[in-house]
């Protein structure tokens, strides 16, 4: 009886050892000279495999960068520091555009809007949006179930007590996962230096908006008229800002009667 234990131990252990040695030798014998930059570039990348660059993962992007297929600034998440590190390895210089972070274009949390429906189904925005159109009175606004927070690979989004997502500008890398996750398309990417954001996505008429949300855009058009740069246009009862034209003057936020437009005093430091 004891024999069988010993025999199985020896057989399996022996097989394991022999195969391990064989594989080790084979790895030596079939070693391929790889471009040593490949590993360096891969180490310089963030390594979260978020896929924002359009490649399968960080390893695939590293391969593409080394082979010259992708630019050294191919990683939108790493920002300028990563791009520069990679450029150093590759012996070129990097030109990096401004970092973008996510902005939530809705301010209608539990306090600002009415709750019209009680929803006890699957607790994701996607499901709620399909079944009942959400629990809040506004059919364009945030559903508050946090699909974006779940989707964020960097833990940059937290759902606050008011049922709205809060984005941590330090943690946000601009990968855009939340933009894709939101079934209502209320999250957008904006350059980090821009301070003015029109936080409403409702196309409802002003009268309707007034009834269902205290901070919604009523489409009065004052911001559009007051803007010295012509950066705001009115479209289907909603003010839309053109970040390229905006100069951070903050006039629109001052004049907005409903407080939809937000102007942050503190400029988020560009990293």
């Amino acid at each position: 009886m004891v024999n069988i234990y010993i025999a199985s131990l020896i057989t399996l252990g022996g097989l394991g050892v022999i195969l391990a040695i064989g594989l080790g030798l084979a790895a030596k014998a079939f070693h391929i000279e790889k471009d040593e930059r490949l590993e360096l570039v891969e180490n310089a990348l963030p390594g979260v495999n978020c896929g924002a660059c359009g490649y399968v993962g960080c390893a695939a992007l590293a391969e593409a960068i080394v082979s010259g297929e992708a630019p050294v600034e191919g990683c939108p998440v790493g920002g300028s520091s990563t791009a520069q590190a990679i450029a150093e390895i590759m012996g070129t210089t990097a030109t990096v555009g401004e970092r973008e972070i996510a902005q939530v274009l809705c301010k209608g949390g539990l306090k600002e809007t009415l709750t019209t429906v009680e929803y006890q189904g699957i607790q994701t925005c996607k499901a709620a949006n399909m079944i009942s159109g959400g629990t809040k009175s506004c059919q364009y606004g945030c559903l508050g179930l946090g699909d974006c927070a779940v989707a964020c690979p960097f833990d940059a989004i937290i759902m606050n007590d008011n049922g709205l997502p809060e984005i941590d500008p330090d943690k946000c890398t601009g990968c855009g996962e939340c933009v894709r996750a939101c079934p209502r398309n209320i999250i957008t990417m904006a350059p980090i230096s821009k301070r003015t954001h029109i936080r409403c996505s409702s196309y409802d008429h002003g009268k309707v908006v007034r009834q269902i949300c205290t901070v919604g855009c009523i489409g009065c058009g004052i911001c559009s008229r007051v803007c010295p740069e012509d950066a705001i246009r009115m479209e289907n009862n909603l003010a839309i800002i053109d970040y390229e034209k905006c100069t951070n003057c903050g006039l629109c936020a001052e004049k907005c009667p409903t407080g939809t437009i937000e102007y942050s005093e503190i400029l988020i430091e560009a990293i």
């Binding site: 069988i4 025999a7 399996l12 097989l15 195969l19 064989g22 594989l23 084979a26």
Partner: peptide, 23 residues
Amino acid sequence: GLQFLETVTFIIVIAALVQFVEM
């Protein structure tokens, strides 16, 4: 007389074999 080990053994051997072939 170790037929009862066939599943484990096959898994090890196949995995190693494929690794080798890949290299």
